Computed example of a mutant assay.
Amino acid sequence: MTSSAVRPLLARAVDTALDRSVVLGYTSLGLAVRRALPGWPADPAAGALEGRHVLVTGASSGLGVATAAGLADLDATVHLLVRDEAKGEGAAERIRGAQPGARLRLWRCDVGDLDDVRRFAADFATEVAELRAVVHNAGVMPTERTESAQGHELSMAVHVLGPVVMTEALRGPLRGGRVVLVGSGGMYAQGLRADDPGYLTGDHSPTTAYARSKRMQVELAPLLARRWDDLTVAVMHPGWADTPGVQESLPMFRRLTRPVLRDDAQGADTSVWLAAVEPAPPTGLFWHDRVPRPTSLLPTTRPSPADLDRARAWLEDAAGLG
């Protein structure tokens, strides 16, 4: 039974109204209201991750740092995966400054480069025998269509292929663990483009490329949950958070919404909760503010079985899945 199923009916109705309104539900106001409603899912217990190891990608800024800090606050040993080691060191120092006892380890990897992902995972698995959770937070929004080292469209490489390849390579340490992919509510505006995962047709839009890759995460989650049947697989979206990505890529949106944007810790809340809460949440679902959400709000964005089969085939080929 999901946490949403045991909430009072009125609380569920208010929560759903917030979610469908978008503007209210995705902001800091929506989170504040939800926290005040009866049945808000309980926080993980203090020290819930003591003795456990967790991995956070894209951990040098924004939601990644907040996620790492939240997990460290639950006494986890947190492995920060970054592309820029200098920025990663700065992030680790900020966390230690606020949490002097935080146990942190820094690793370098370009999540969009599948060869580098496999290299990192092999190194990691030799040092960490048991991994409670991986939070795939690394994100990009290039202004032009950009390809990864292996020739994949970069948004798909960083948000889909890299996380899948990394999880596959870490199945040994992750056995019985959890996989959290940080998605985006922006995916609601896009259907599953399994016919063009490389964004080879049409005029390129950074926000569209980003949203398409996030849609791909959500639609593949149930398939991955079946493949990784010993793991808990979750996709979550943080709402509207004042992240460096928003500041750099969506300056007009930020100017209009800044008073109600979530801070990094509020945006990271559900990632931390999914990684730590007991018992483990249901697998293969899409989450926001600790509650499972529908994956489509409009019939036009619901994929057909043929679309899902094509997406699965693309993933198996591009990620080299056996």
Results as ranks from 00 to 15, higher is better:
residue 9 L to K: 11
residue 15 D to R: 11
residue 16 T to S: 15
residue 19 D to G: 03
residue 20 R to M: 09
residue 23 V to R: 15
residue 28 S to L: 12
residue 34 R to N: 14
residue 35 R to T: 06
residue 35 R to D: 01
residue 37 L to C: 03
residue 40 W to V: 06
residue 43 D to I: 10
residue 45 A to S: 13
residue 49 L to Y: 02
residue 49 L to E: 02
residue 55 L to R: 05
residue 57 T to N: 08
residue 61 S to P: 00
residue 62 G to W: 00
residue 62 G to N: 08
residue 65 V to I: 15
residue 66 A to H: 08
residue 67 T to I: 12
residue 68 A to W: 06
residue 70 G to M: 07
residue 73 D to K: 05
residue 74 L to C: 08
residue 80 L to A: 06
residue 81 L to M: 14
residue 81 L to Q: 06
residue 87 K to A: 15
residue 96 R to P: 01
residue 99 Q to P: 00
residue 102 A to Y: 10
residue 106 L to V: 12
residue 108 R to V: 14
residue 112 G to W: 04
residue 116 D to L: 12
residue 117 V to A: 10
residue 120 F to N: 02
residue 120 F to A: 14
residue 122 A to L: 13
residue 128 V to D: 09
residue 131 L to G: 02
residue 132 R to K: 11
residue 134 V to L: 11
residue 135 V to C: 07
residue 140 V to A: 07
residue 141 M to I: 00
residue 142 P to Y: 09
residue 146 T to D: 11
residue 149 A to I: 11
residue 151 G to D: 11
residue 152 H to V: 03
residue 155 S to Q: 15
residue 160 V to C: 02
residue 161 L to I: 12
residue 164 V to D: 03
residue 166 M to D: 07
residue 168 E to S: 13
residue 169 A to E: 08
residue 173 P to L: 05
residue 173 P to E: 04
residue 181 L to Q: 09
residue 186 G to E: 00
residue 187 M to A: 14
residue 188 Y to G: 07
residue 190 Q to G: 02
residue 194 A to Q: 02
residue 194 A to E: 03
residue 197 P to S: 04
residue 198 G to M: 12
residue 201 T to N: 13
residue 207 T to Y: 01
residue 209 A to C: 14
residue 213 S to D: 09
residue 215 R to V: 05
residue 219 E to P: 08
residue 219 E to V: 15
residue 222 P to N: 09
residue 223 L to R: 13
residue 223 L to I: 14
residue 227 R to S: 05
residue 229 D to F: 06
residue 240 W to H: 05
residue 240 W to P: 00
residue 241 A to P: 09
residue 248 E to D: 15
residue 250 L to G: 00
residue 254 R to E: 04
residue 256 L to V: 13
residue 257 T to G: 01
residue 258 R to W: 13
residue 259 P to H: 07
residue 259 P to I: 11
residue 262 R to W: 06
residue 289 D to S: 10
residue 291 V to G: 00
residue 293 R to D: 05
residue 294 P to L: 10
residue 298 L to K: 11
residue 301 T to S: 12
residue 302 R to Y: 07
residue 307 D to M: 09
residue 321 L to C: 06
